[in-house]
Design a protein around this nucleic acid. Structure first.
Lengths: 123, 123
DNA sequence: CACTAACGTTAGCTGTCCCTGACGCAGAAG
DNA sequence: CTTCTGCGTCAGGGACAGCTAACGTTAGTG
């Protein structure tokens, strides 16, 4: 149960990270983070085919980072803040444990250094 | 100047994200986030070759997510919290603008809905 | 109905990533 | 100096990701 949730979280984190590990996808996300835009408008902002942009939009959508809304023949996209929440938690956890471990190891090293100093003074 | 910094930040963000967009690298990072471990110990935790783990360690190191310290023939690794700082900023900025835009668009939509209601009532 | 506009989808190519096996190199130990 | 240990590095192969061109689909227009 808990492991299932952990797996689900890991899967979501994986998809979101792989989606963001692409410069063009980050650029697209930045575009729709400040405005709701149609696929054509987004595609016009880059010098690649609409096909490529459409595929990027699909990836971002599957990762939960994007919301699609249809209006006639157009499809409007905008960033979905909730999609980033999981990543923020992941990074915060990692950051906290890393910082804690770093502090602990530095303190231990200083303790060892003190001992060495005492030893060198004694020697 | 500012654009250079922006480029540098983007490059760092790109490397960090590509490094983290790998389940095994995330697992390695979690390992060295709670303890300082030698390359062999890290490799022993997975069922892939030491070569693969060594390459993963190189990627993580180049992304600034890892610190290497040599002790005899061994190389000790631990997570570097500063490497995650840039990503946290990136995610926070994205989250803030996305949330702001979402709120703004929802308010605009409600305004339009009200107008429509008024119009339908008037019609 | 035919026609256009705005997209998504598929097939195929190319580059890149992750893995393994073989080799190289530095630091202890005899 | 030789041997062993602990790692990194190089060469290669299979799998995957991103791009383009051609086609399919849905909504509006006459």
């Amino acid at each position: 149960m808990a492991s299932v949730d952990a797996d689900a979280t890991e899967r979501a984190t994986d998809e979101a990270l792989k989606a963001l590990a692409e410069p063009r996808r980050r650029a697209i996300l930045r575009l729709v983070a400040s405005d709701e835009l149609a696929a054509g408008q987004i595609a016009a902002a880059f010098d690649v085919t609409r096909t490529a942009v459409s595929q990027h939009l699909t990836v971002l959508r599957n990762a939960g980072l994007l919301t699609e809304r249809r209006e006639g023949t157009r499809r409007l996209y905008r960033a979905q803040p909730e999609g980033l929440a999981g990543l923020r938690r992941f990074l915060d956890d990692m950051w906290a444990s890393s910082l804690d471990t770093a502090r602990r190891l530095v303190e231990a090293e200083e303790g060892i250094t003190d001992d060495k100093n005492h030893a060198s003074r004694a020697g």
